[in-house]
Amino acid sequence: MECEKLKINDNHDEGVITVDVSNSILVDSVTAMAQTLLPADYIQSSEDLNDDGDSTKLTLAYERLYELPRTIIETFCDHIRYLDISHNKITNLDGLVHFKHLTTLIADDNPITEHCLLPPMPNLQLLWLNRCKISSLYPWVSKLKESCQNLQYLSVMGNPAAPSYFNGGTFYEMLQYRLFVISQFPSLLHLDDRKVTEDQREEAHRLYKRPLLERIMKPGSGSLTQLMTSSVTWSSVHNKLSSFWNKEKGQRRNLLI
């Protein structure tokens, strides 16, 4: 497999980033990288990602980046399908909006929080955000769903928002987290370190996708219109809700996660 080698040099003109594609030279003064020859897999063509063999893999891991350099975006965004920006200091992913053909994004070990939203990426199928700083799933997961509607592989292990035995999460918290994320992505095949099973998908739909009133009403109790037009008291609504939640809790299946 043929690979392009890029060399990084210091530049005293602060804020200037230039790329000499003909000589395979990258000058980046913003990140103040050392004068070292990057590994051969820094940029490499990847025939495994596309049958016609013209896809490209770009690796920017361990480069002390705070953001995606503008010149990198301008030079490679049109043909990159696999991008690795792991082990950096990136907190903003807005620059990814230019990578129209990106199908795989590896962004592990960055200080990315739930306030960092991905731009629309309809072609993205695999997203790794392990060991970042995501502390809340809502509304982050909903926003992620809007940006990456065709996501099939998602891993957010090691984040505070992803309960596990390693960060003090209980089995029930782990299960609820997993089912909630699955409910948001109908095309998801793999979450974290496990495949998504049909039982999990059905349970996720039962818990999080069915309308609340539909779940409260018993079969044969009348239509929604009848319920809305009938005379009800807060006491009766409260009793129905309490009965519903207790019943739901008692009927939850012990799904393996």
Rank of each mutant, 00 (worst) to 15 (best):
K247F: 02
K89R: 12
E114S: 05
Y177E: 04
R194E: 11
H190N: 12
Y66V: 05
L175P: 03
E198A: 13
N130A: 08
C148P: 03
K7A: 15
E198P: 06
S231G: 13
I90Q: 08
C77P: 03
S243A: 13
R215K: 14
V16S: 08
E63N: 03
L144C: 06
L256P: 11
L212M: 11
V30E: 12
L58Y: 01
G95S: 03
E67P: 03
P120K: 04
S29N: 10
D192R: 07
T91F: 00
D48V: 08
K209R: 14
L105R: 00
M217W: 03
N50R: 15
R64K: 09
I182A: 06
E202D: 14
I90G: 05
T31L: 09
K5W: 15
D84Y: 00
G158M: 00
L118S: 02
N246E: 09
E214M: 15
L179D: 00
N92K: 01
L129I: 01
S231R: 09
D10N: 15
G168L: 10
K195W: 14
V196I: 08
M121G: 00
S135E: 06
H87D: 08
N123T: 12
Y66S: 06
T75G: 00
Q35L: 11
E114W: 04
G168A: 08
L255N: 02
A204R: 02
D193K: 13
S223W: 09
M174T: 00
H115Q: 05
C77S: 13
